[in-house]
């Protein structure tokens, strides 16, 4: 039983390491700023999820029996979309990606609208 658990956690380690590597490789390989956002937010998050699952499974083989690593995983899964959202807002605000089509119902996208009335970014104020 313990041997099976050990092998399963070893495989989870390999899967997690593979996904983490793919996430960072995608960050380096892809050429468009918005495309780069996809690789780390998905592959990176699942990679860490698998590593943490491996850690939990391994703790059952050594008799520590800890499940609290799952909190780190839950926290990462909740915060990863928010970080990605903020990074894409930065791209939209600074115009470093393709201009999106205008929204069909309202006037503007929120980020563009904010940029007009919010305080200027320091580097914009200087130029």
């Amino acid at each position: 039983m313990i041997a099976i658990l050990e092998i399963v956690s070893a495989i989870a380690l390999l899967v997690g390491a593979l996904f983490t590597l793919v996430g960072s490789y995608g960050l380096l390989k892809l050429d468009d700023p918005m495309k780069r956002l996809h690789a780390p937010t998905k592959a990176g998050t699942l990679g860490i999820g698998a590593l943490i699952m491996a850690s939990i499974l391994h703790s059952f083989t050594t008799g520590i029996d800890s499940v609290h690593e799952i909190l780190v995983m839950a926290f990462l899964f909740v915060t990863a979309p928010i970080s990605a959202h903020f990074v894409s807002k930065v791209h939209l605000h600074r115009g470093t990606c393709e201009t999106p089509p205008p929204p069909p119902e309202d006037k503007v996208w929120a980020t563009r609208g904010q940029a007009d009335d919010g305080p200027l970014a320091p580097d914009q104020a200087q130029s």
Binding site: K89, P100, D106
Partner: peptide, 11 residues
Amino acid sequence: VSADLSDEGHC
């Protein structure tokens, strides 16, 4: 990836 919301939240 969801990037932005329109100013009154319809899109």
